[in-house]
Design a protein around this nucleic acid. Sequence first.
DNA 1: CTAACAAGTTAGATTAAACTAACAAAATAT
DNA 2: ATATTTTGTTAGTTTAATCTAACTTGTTAG
Lengths: 219, 219
Amino acid sequence: MISQTEENYLKALYNLTYLKGEASVNEISKRLEIKMPTVNSMMKKLSEKGFVHYESYKPLKLTEEGKKEAALIIRKHRLTEMYLVEKMGFAWDEVHQIAEQIEHIHSPEFFTKMDQLLGYPTVDPHGSPIPDHNGVMRSESYIFLDTCKTGDAVTLMAVQPSSKELLQYLSAKDLELGTTLTILSIEPFDNSITVNYGNRISEVLSSKVTATLLVRPIS
Amino acid sequence: MISQTEENYLKALYNLTYLKGEASVNEISKRLEIKMPTVNSMMKKLSEKGFVHYESYKPLKLTEEGKKEAALIIRKHRLTEMYLVEKMGFAWDEVHQIAEQIEHIHSPEFFTKMDQLLGYPTVDPHGSPIPDHNGVMRSESYIFLDTCKTGDAVTLMAVQPSSKELLQYLSAKDLELGTTLTILSIEPFDNSITVNYGNRISEVLSSKVTATLLVRPIS
DNA sequence: CTAACAAGTTAGATTAAACTAACAAAATAT
DNA sequence: ATATTTTGTTAGTTTAATCTAACTTGTTAG
């Protein structure tokens, strides 16, 4: 059996690793607001249980089983958000806290019913994909930034493939998962693009960079 | 803050005391399948928190605050059961386990919305009353057995007022909370009634007894 | 290249919620 | 009325999940 607490760690790790394939103890610690030693011992425990690849001083990765478990929790979360908005009339910004709790309910029938009543949705109210009942996340809704056109507004969802250098570059530019970018222009010569986001105006991103950035168009 | 575990103890105590105003450590222990010493220390804790009147070797009672807390949990449980049946298409016998979990969700808005979507129901799918948002249980749906007529089928819901002797009498007759009785006849002379229930055929109950038994007619 | 800083780890303490074993009080039955 | 059984309590242990303090490893800036 897998506790609610363990589920929260798996989910955090899934979301962090989705961006770059691995994550650190420190990142989980910050995200969950739990001190590093606690995270450290939980990672060892989840490693014992076969959900995490843990080696001292190395970055953390989810095992295939860990990915599936996490995706199934995220499935429950997103189905719930969708249900709350579509069937109960909540606003999209009111549903997260409730879904954080309902995602831990143990009842396959309950979520199957939700899924059915919703007509088997593939994305949640924020446009994020809902993993299927095997924990497989359709990633088709994400596209690479270099396939977008001038005027598009998109949200940065993932970086693939990623390298330390690339992530440092993105950090230096204040580009984080969830950042919304507006494409001002595309240079035909080298396919570099000029974008606005946050406080940054007219930042230029090379095609080497834009070819790694997975984004979701804002509907 | 009140933990999920504490909520379960309060609910158990509420349900047990609803029948007779007080309950024992042993009864809670059996109902929750938790050993007596654990129950004992939890009762002391809940007493510290002001939810339970605890005195060594004395029966347990809920304080007014404890009653309110418990009733509000039961409200969430019953609203949920109603919602699952009415809005999601579950059968009445599939909803208990799910409601046991959802009753612990912390989100007033969630339950307010349910209540609203259901049109402010006053009873759950099993006919049990739903306490209002102040934790007040309408008991109008329960009537005394001596006000019923021949042929009625009713469920025993509570005993009021109760005494040790009465409860022992009821136990000896296998009459428990939840027992369904069918009224065969009523003796005009002394108002004693003859009933069937469980394996018991033609048991006679005096008016002194029937005037204390709160029952719910089976719709 | 090394000093300083950041990140990761180990050890040990704390709290909540469970348990068993042993003892005390109350209820019951002979 | 006393012995037996049931119920309640106390004391001490366990496990999960957190923490702080102290130490180690790895990274980064002069």
